[in-house]
Design a protein around this nucleic acid. Sequence first.
DNA 1: GCTGGAGTAATTTTT
DNA 2: TTACTCCAGC
Length: 797
Amino acid sequence: MRTLSDHNATSAPLPRPGGLAARAAAAPAAGYLAGLNPEQRLAVEATDGPVLVLAGAGTGKTRVLTTRIAHLIATNRAYPSQILSVTFTNKAAREMKERIAHLVGSVAEGMPWLGTFHSISAKLLRRHAELLGLRSDFTILDTDDQIRLMKQVIAAADIDEKRWPGRMLAGFIDSWKNRGLAPKDVPPGEAAVFANGKGGALYHAYQERLKTLNAVDFGDLLLHCLTLFRDNPDVLATYHERFRYILVDEYQDTNTAQYLWLRLLAQGRRNIACVGDDDQSIYGWRGAEVDNILRFEHDFPGATVVRLERNYRSTGHILATASKLIARNEGRLGKTLRTEDVEGEKVTITGAWDSQEEARLIGDEIESLQRNGHNLSEIAILVRISAQMREIEDRFVHLGLPYRVIGGPRFYERAEIRDAMAYLRCVVSPTDDLAFERIVNVPKRGLGDATIQILHNHARASQVSLLQSARMVVESDELKPKARTALRELVEAFGRWSARAEHMPQGELAELVLEEAGYTEMWQKDRSADAAGRLENLKELVRSLDEFPDLPAFLEHVSLVMDADSGETAERVSIMTLHGAKGLEFDTVFLPGWEEGLFPNQRALDESGRAGLEEERRLAHVGLTRARKRLKLYFASNRRIHGLWQSSLPSRFIDELPEEHVEVVQAASNYSQGGYGASRFDRMESFGSSYNTPGWQRAQENKAKAGSGGGSGFSDSGGRGFGQSSFGAGRQRGPMLIEGELTAKSTGSSAYDPGARVFHVKFGPGSVASVDGNKLTVDFDKAGRKMVLDSFVQKAG
DNA sequence: GCTGGAGTAATTTTT
DNA sequence: TTACTCCAGC
């Protein structure tokens, strides 16, 4: 076997003189292992058999993963092509590729099996499509397509789409697929929940439709792989042969389907190394099973478990604060992070009168940091829900503080990009009905529902694609002249574009298509504020097209990689959700909104009880551990929820922080607001003591009364779910009510059963008609049938 | 077929 | 408060 270092010496420059590869050749155990601590080194060198690396925040997880790969290659245990390494996000995959390339030279192209679960699955499926009744050029549907298809399936089954929305069915089907359940595997009881027992049949019909469209959705990528492996042991065996080593990143985020996928592939050689942190599992609501990581040793007997507990990121106070908080969780494997860094600044907690003052305080603090020479791109504000961003943004705009919101709709999810993509999809594959349907009347051509219905009828009757049936229909006299002309023009245009596609560079082609389709013009004429931005995005799309060898390659990329690098590097404060912050780190982190109801979030508590609370706490832990040097928590006593001012109590998580590492900062505001008087926190002396005075509690009660307007927001939905934080003691609320077991799934059903009597603040009493996760359809005695979230109702007699 | 006003509901988000 | 969906009226 030729060693990697030979390869590097001949075909690629070494990353630096005397770097890894050269030394690896001379002495296999040198170089890249040098800077590792003993645990990291163990995690790298325990090559064979199952390995679980519990990597706490900031403990060098990615370094271990990449070094491990380098080690496998350098010691000739496997060729790069024999290592399967799976990540969750494209970003993580990209990063790993870069770091491996850096470690061992330009071997990244030689790592064909490093990617996300979905992209690797897509690759496997394209190879074996015929075994699953697909063609290898199947299309991968995005969420929009998926929902549109659901609607069609629902309509075809003669079910009222208003009562049973496509989005809802998509949610069900998605969660079934997350659990590795094909239509035949769905428990009848669960399948019956949707559309009065028709859920299973609809799932079945949807899968049939996908097959005829030669399409798969995201869930299918994994599910089809499971079928492929189970039904074709010979195929699976070839992959057992190929994949000598399997590595998995963020194992705590795997769902059941992914777990099964891994288990099938790992059966062969059992060389599977999973890296993760149960304390950072924050995607339970989306099907991730913390259980997978908690059960690892049981699933893979004889596993080596390595704990990485040395934190290289945060200072002492910050780390101690995070550790103390997460120690409250029961369902965890248990790690104790330690640092050799200085104690640093204490974590601060600041109470604000309301969310506007909170935003003001944060803005002031950042300006002061800026004056002291701190880099804005080393500052982040992490919020629980996106709605919190608005006030902060408003304040920043007011101050002229540059900021960037991370997350939100991404490039390829924007409507204009999807439209443009749909045009291109139609050009590349004229049978892509969903794409055709998306753009047939964008821009407006006078081809509305009626016309599309006719096309559908024809297509179904003659077993042809929509575009083909359009060709036929324009030759008939079924359409009114106006529609007929419009449709004829479109059909002819597609013929033209497809012919051009053969010879034209794809960027140019895209430009031509968008121009001739009138799409560019549509936005040019649009006078709304974001039209210019959309045109800019379209330009960007055309630009990025040229980076791909051909159009199909580009389309594959886009359906699997939904993000695009903006290349933004300007100095800005980052604002994002806590979920979006996972994996990132900043010198200074602001965490606003630490209030009961908001964080921990009431809905998480209502939906998943104890397990939900623990996931919220893990989310808090993720937030705290993003900070390197400065960590600043805030809570506001009043916050506007859905337009109504609501009073709120400090989060129970604040109670759970260690006093000795935390400092309560007095809010500077002494001015009165709205007649409520100055902030009650003006006289706070030290953490944990003055909060607890009877006077303070009374003040809280008074504020609660004054502030509550009887709406249905989280702090006034009744006596459910309020924590017995010391802050809240004595408040006229019901006792803390945490329902469910630790293992309760957020995807599981709600606490209500059909037939149950409930009470809604706005709609009054009613009976539950059906349940979809946390959404209830309730027949209210007065208000009639409504869909409500279960957190907005109470059980009633 | 299109548009704008009323009605309605309200985490977290990747692939 | 706001963002989205739906239907009436053009």
